[in-house]
Design a protein around this nucleic acid. Structure first.
Lengths: 225, 225
DNA sequence: AGAATTTGATAGTAATACTATTATATTTGC
DNA sequence: GCAAATATAATAGTATTACTATCAAATTCT
C-alpha cells in the first residue's frame, strides 16, 4: 500500500537501529511475539535469543536492556497511532467529526496494518495494554524524559488536545482528558479480560469506545459529532 | 482516636500476619519506606532485611515474594480507602453530596491518618500511585483473582458505583466510570510530577480532583452536589 | 521448667542481567 | 576479486536476585 513508509523511533532508545538489518527486525518481531506470550517480567534476552536462533550478546548490541526494547515498542506504537490519527482526520473539516474519529482510533481494538510487515500490531497492542505503564513507571523516568524518550506520546496527546481546543477554547483540561482517555481505554480492556468486576460489558457495542466518546464530548460541553 | 480499629487484608496474601508481631510490623513499615525510596524494581528483601536489621529468611516467613508484599500494601490501601469513604459519606443524606465526597476522597492527595501508627499513608499513597498497576498487570493475575486477591478493590468500585446508580439508575457504565476515575487520578498525579506535558496544571486549585468531579457529574448527567 | 514456636545466622542454588573475548561470517570499498 | 571493515556467533564469566534449607539461639506459652 505505502511501500516507502517507515515509523521513526527516537535514536536514543536503541544502540543500533533494528530497522537496519535482518537480525534487528528479528529481534523486534520475535520480541513482540515472546513478550506477548510471557509478559514483561518473564521475558528475557536469553529466551529471545533461543527463539530467534541468535545469541544474547548479539541482541545486546541493538538494545541496552529489555526495558529499552519495551520503550522502543511503545514508541513505535505511539508514532504509528499518530500516523493513523493524522490519516483518519485528514480532509475531515468538521472538528466534532475529527474528535470522534480520534477518540475512536485511540480506544478501539486494533487490527493488522499491512503497511508494516515485521510488526504484528494486534500483539503489539496487547503488549501496550498490559505493559506500557512499566515503560514510564520506573525510577529512571526523569532522566529518560530529559533525553526525549516520551516525546512521541506527548506529541500524540498534544495533537488530540488541539482538536479539543478547536471545539472549546475555554476547556481547562485538554491534556488531562486525552491522557485519561488513552490510559483509561487500555486499563478497561485489561480489566474486561482479567478483572471484569472493575468494568461494564454491554452486549452489542464496543462499550469502551462508547464510554470514552460519551465522556469526552460531555466533558467539553459539545454535542457528539 | 479509634484505638481498636484495624484494617483487614485477605489472608491468602501473606504466610503469617504482619500485624501479629513486632517483626511483621517492621517489615511493613520498613517495606513502605524502602519501596518508596527505591521503587518496586530495585526493592529487594535483602535490602529490606539490612534496613530493618533482620534477615532475608525471616522476611520470607511473612511474605512469599516482594510481589505479595506489594499486594498486601495495595490491599491495605483499598481497605483503608473503603473505610474512609464509608466514614466520609456517613449520615450525608443527599446522594449528590455523597458522590462529591467519594470522588474527592478517591482523587485528592492523602495525608497522614493517625489511627494506624505503623503505616505512613503519604508514602503508601505514593507507592500506590507509582506501583499499584504492577500488582495486577502480571501474568499470574487470573489465578490470584480466583482466590480473591482483588476483592478489596472490587468492593471499593462497587461502593461508589452504587452511589452513581442511586443518582442515575439508567447510567450504563458506573464501574467503568469509577475505575477510570481512580486509576486516572493516580496516573495524573504521576504525570504531574514526571511527565507534565501529559496533564494540565491549574494554579489555585487541585486540578486533578476538579477534573474528575467535573467529568463524573457530567458523565451521569447530574448537576454537581 | 519444659515444650513449642519464632527469629537469626549462615549457606547454597538456579536464574537474571549483563560484559568481555575471540573466532567466524558477511558486507563494503577499491 | 580481494583486503579491510564490520557484524554476528560461540563461549565464558560476574554480580545480583529470588528464593530454599539447616540449625542454633532466643522468646513465649503452659
Amino acid at each position: 500500500m505505502l511501500p516507502n513508509l517507515s515509523i521513526q523511533v527516537n535514536e536514543c532508545i536503541y544502540l543500533k537501529s533494528p530497522e537496519s538489518s535482518e537480525l534487528g527486525r528479528k529481534i523486534v518481531t520475535g520480541g513482540i511475539n515472546l513478550m506477548d506470550e510471557l509478559g514483561f517480567e518473564s521475558f528475557t534476552f536469553r529466551k529471545l535469543a533461543v527463539r530467534i536462533e541468535s545469541t544474547e550478546a548479539s541482541i545486546y548490541r541493538y538494545f541496552e536492556s529489555k526495558h529499552k526494547l519495551l520503550l522502543y515498542l511503545t514508541n513505535w506504537y505511539w508514532s504509528w497511532m499518530e500516523y493513523r490519527l493524522m490519516f483518519g482526520m485528514a480532509n475531515i473539516l468538521n472538528p466534532r467529526e475529527r474528535l470522534s474519529r480520534a477518540i475512536t482510533l485511540l480506544t478501539e481494538q486494533v487490527d493488522e496494518d499491512s503497511n508494516f510487515s515485521h510488526i504484528n500490531e494486534v500483539k503489539l497492542n496487547r503488549i501496550v495494554i498490559a505493559e506500557s505503564s512499566k515503560a514510564y513507571q520506573y525510577k529512571g523516568v526523569d532522566d529518560e524524559n530529559k533525553i526525549g524518550v516520551f516525546s512521541g506520546y506527548k506529541q500524540l496527546v498534544a495533537t488530540v488536545s488541539d482538536v479539543i481546543l478547536e471545539l472549546n477554547g475555554n476547556y481547562k483540561y485538554p491534556h488531562m482528558l486525552v491522557s485519561t482517555v488513552i490510559e483509561g481505554a487500555h486499563i478497561q480492556r485489561y480489566f474486561a479480560e482479567h478483572l471484569p468486576k472493575l468494568t461494564d460489558e454491554v452486549t452489542g457495542e464496543d462499550a469502551i469506545t462508547e464510554f470514552y466518546l460519551d465522556v469526552t464530548f460531555k466533558a467539553i460541553d459539545i454535542k457528539r459529532g
